[in-house]
Amino acid sequence: MPIAEGVVFDLTFVWGFLIALAVLIYVVLDGFDLGLGMLFAVEPERRHRDVMMNSVAPVWDGNETWLVLGGGGLFAAFPLAYALILPALYAPIIAMLLALIFRGVAFEFRWRTERWRGVWDVAFIGGSAVAALSQGIALGGLLQGITIDKAARAYAGGWWDWLTPFSVTVGLAVMVGYMLLGATWLVMKTDGELQDRMRSRAWILGVATVAFIGVVSLWTPFLQEGYFVRWFAGTRILLAGLVGVAVLALAFLMFRALHVHRHDYWPFLLALAMFGLCFVGLGICMFPYIVPTEVTLWEAAAPYRAQLFMIIGAGILIPIILAYTAYAYWVFRGKVDPEAGYH
């Protein structure tokens, strides 16, 4: 039974929450990696690029693992949703996977060659940009709805359905948002000239991110009737307004943190909070659907026995994973030393 009735411990709801959490963690963690990758394009100097890459070299692999948990978790806990969504978003997902290959190997390859370093730098920039764009397009493609044959439990649309002005807008929004995360991460992890430039970029990117959040938020309710009802009927309009006000408040705080107080780590934390808020908004928008507005979490859920088996492991392992992930970040805390470096 839905938790909305407030009494029953509902494994399906818990799994929906956990997968959303895994995706959120992925988005913010790999978000700053990918954003940093895109910012490579405007930092042509070798020593700055080295510092930028070194700031994420020890953690990028762990960050990307959350994407595997998101996909794997969806497969395990909501196999029907996995089977409907992935064929629908075939092209952007394949593009994302290929882009992540270029991005991932660039971490190793660019240190291995003088002659071809430029090529792997381009692979790093292009891979990051295409991965971010594809992820946004995939999100947009899901939000705008996909054509399914519910009786056949199968995707029933064409293979270009995902491509619309809306999905491309969300794609651009995610690129800009990731760059904001990347810029604020670098404000935290670097100093001097590079940090100063990232400060100004972070502010521009912050304004652009807020603008994109506004556009996407205003556009989404008109995509499907269900969304309109959810956002503007009853008490949800209040909630929706609250989310909007909170985003603006965060933007204001970020401006102060960046330029008035010249904080190192607050801008990054505020950017994280901004992504968190967007996720809450997305949750309000989609719940209780996992394939909007066709299939609910409960319709797509794996049988109780499968969810139970996994929740035991997840309950024990996720806290341990968070602990050693936090430890790994702690080990590599502080500014990247441009002289020594640890890559």
Partner: peptide, 26 residues
């Protein structure tokens, strides 16, 4: 995936939780 997901999905989720994070984290 839809048909076999309830059986093999959890095993793969355990692979992520017990192995991939461990490797990547360390």
């Amino acid at each position: 995936s839809d048909k076999a997901g309830p059986v093999i999905g959890p095993l793969m989720a355990y692979e992520v939780l017990t192995a991939f994070f461990l490797e990547a984290g360390f």
